[in-house]
Design a protein around this nucleic acid. Structure first.
Lengths: 341, 341
DNA sequence: GCATTTTATGAAAACATTTGCATTACTATT
DNA sequence: AATAGTAATGCAAATGTTTTCATAAAATGC
């Protein structure tokens, strides 16, 4: 009676208060149809009164599901991932799951650690960004038979189920748009491709398309820049200061494109008058820029939603079936590119 | 031996493989100093070989900590929250915690549900955005004695520990900057203040400051707009189309400011030539706009980091001490405002 | 070489819950 | 009224780990 160490209510406390056994309380939660409505009511009242909160941990111990899904992203602080995280979160929430999230800052080493961490929490499934992961990661996922899905990237021959876009195609589309507009002096600004298959494939796709058109890209016109407006701005300036400057730029994503545009403008040149710029992604906000950014749209919201639905489906159905979902890409022409006259 | 139903390795499997008891294995994890280095090595080899992964759920059942912290945000898909989530995540990761995240889409009802959900997962602590929450939420947190912290908002008289900025002050600073620059015809674009104490206080602060200067704000110059570039753009257009237009705009945050700028430009007017615009937040990217956005900087990264450190500290120390951390605000003058000559 | 302390380990209880099996009390069928 | 079937509930075992207590072995002090 001393409220010194007032123990938190557990299931037996509820059971006592409702004058039933713990089993019945448990059943009232997990198989409500098996318990008498009147009893159920009594139990609910007791729960209410005692402020009882179920313990998922104690459920998980019984091999039951945990109702958590782990998502590992390179970084949360990035428009495009934020968007995909949000729609993924909403989709799994719909199915009653909670999101356990971790970020690794573009290190596949750390990604592995994060996966282990999520597994210690006995998540019911894991979603990763991209299809490129360390050998240890693949081994671990296989060995633990963890339902998993790769988002953001599509490949017809992936080991994991995936929901995403064909990034090589995205790169191709971006380059093609410029080439078809008559551009031949094309610069490229992409992030480091280290541990980032999305960037690598986009770059490869773009280069491929350019070469197919018999066009060469000068070394000076290939710049590396992280996903940062400031740094992209700097990177593009270097390119413009050489005596020869490109008439068009393919950018690794919309953030880089944004930076590139500012870089061009800060040199007193105009977009698209002097330099056309195309991005990849179609981030929230790219539409609203002035001029609107021409870009290859990757439907982040779709990807998150479909991935969430598929992964929860996989978990609930207890199957491990393979599936690959490729979302459509299209080049959205707005105001930052123009045909070379 | 039939590998039909290969049971996942548990602690006793490891114990057997290492020829020790389960207790020793457990100790090897939790109190390594208590077990012989040689034995520890044997155990580690067994863990490695069997691919054993510890079960946090089974630990949590012992009242031990879970090493998870719950964070509930209105939305993930928002530059500013993404930034704060990232730094919060990094800070708690540093202390060995994992982030369980949920979003409620600006509904305090749903926020309550999410808190319950996190509690079912026996998170060790909870961080919420803002200081305005439902009565049920406060009751629940108090009753469960959950370590918690409010981020993003500071108040000297808050019930919860908090780490954030004084949003009223932020509003005041923004307005003051314009007033000191000689503006008297000032428009305001803020989101709905429903369940959003940050926005409400900013608006109140701004209005307060304006009135203090003996200036009135016309009704037509007070527009509501969500945190969306497109919608803010529309909202500001309405304001500009009336025969009288303001010479300066205070915007609820940087996203709205961005939209406002585009809106002004799309009417053939110039920023800051015809209309000065000030935002609040200093998002990633506001620096890099052309012209750079004048704004009241709220150090999101700081807030996330400090909040993460304080909350983990609270949990680890097992105390419930109150603290309130107010971060500095300053008005960063860039290119979108100018003195009225 | 004995008593004492320290170090390393194991056995068993505890944790909060679920679940298979058993039991009881009804209801329906003949 | 006897039987079979069903609905509602309880008992007890099981889950994977931690922790307390006990014990054995080794190290230390004299």
């Amino acid at each position: 009676m001393t409220d010194k160490k007032v123990k938190k209510a557990d299931i037996v406390a509820v059971a006592n208060a409702a004058k039933v056994s713990a089993s019945t309380v448990s059943r009232a939660f997990n198989h409500p149809d098996l318990v008498n409505p009147a009893t159920r009511k009594r139990i609910n009242r007791a729960v209410e009164k005692l402020g009882y909160i179920r313990n998922r941990a104690a459920q998980a111990i019984h091999g039951r599901r945990n109702a958590t899904i782990g998502l590992i992203v390179p970084t949360i602080n990035h428009a495009i991932f934020a968007e995909v995280i949000q729609s993924f979160s909403d989709a799994i929430d719909e199915a009653g799951f909670t999101l356990l999230i971790a970020s690794h800052g573009y290190s596949l080493e750390r990604e592995y650690d994060m996966i282990r961490k999520l597994m210690e929490h006995r998540v019911d499934g894991i979603a990763l960004v991209g299809l490129e992961h360390s050998e240890a990661t693949f081994r671990l996922l296989r060995q633990q038979e963890m339902p998993c899905i790769a988002i953001w990237n599509y490949s017809g021959t992936s080991d994991m189920p995936c929901v995403g876009a064909d990034n090589r195609e995205a790169g191709r589309l971006a380059a093609r748009h410029l080439l078809q507009a008559g551009h031949r002096d094309i610069g490229l600004i992409f992030p480091s491709i280290e541990g980032n298959d999305r960037a690598r494939q986009r770059l490869e796709g773009a280069m491929e398309e350019i070469r197919t058109h018999g066009v060469e890209v000068r070394d000076a016109w290939r710049q590396e820049s992280p996903y940062s407006i400031t740094l992209a701005k700097q990177a593009v300036r270097g390119m413009l200061d050489s005596d020869q400057r490109p008439t068009a730029l393919v950018c690794g994503n919309d953030v880089i494109a944004q930076g590139a545009i500012f870089g061009v403008q800060s040199r007193g040149l105009s977009v698209p008058g002097d330099v056309s710029v195309i991005g990849i992604g179609d981030f929230n906000g790219s539409l609203d820029m002035e001029p609107g950014l021409t870009t290859v749209r990757i439907p982040a919201e779709d990807i998150g939603k479909v991935a969430g639905q598929r992964l929860t489906g996989l978990i609930l159905s207890e199957t491990r079936e393979m599936f690959r979902y490729r979302c459509d890409l299209n080049c959205i022409v707005r105001g930052t590119t123009r045909p070379l006259t």
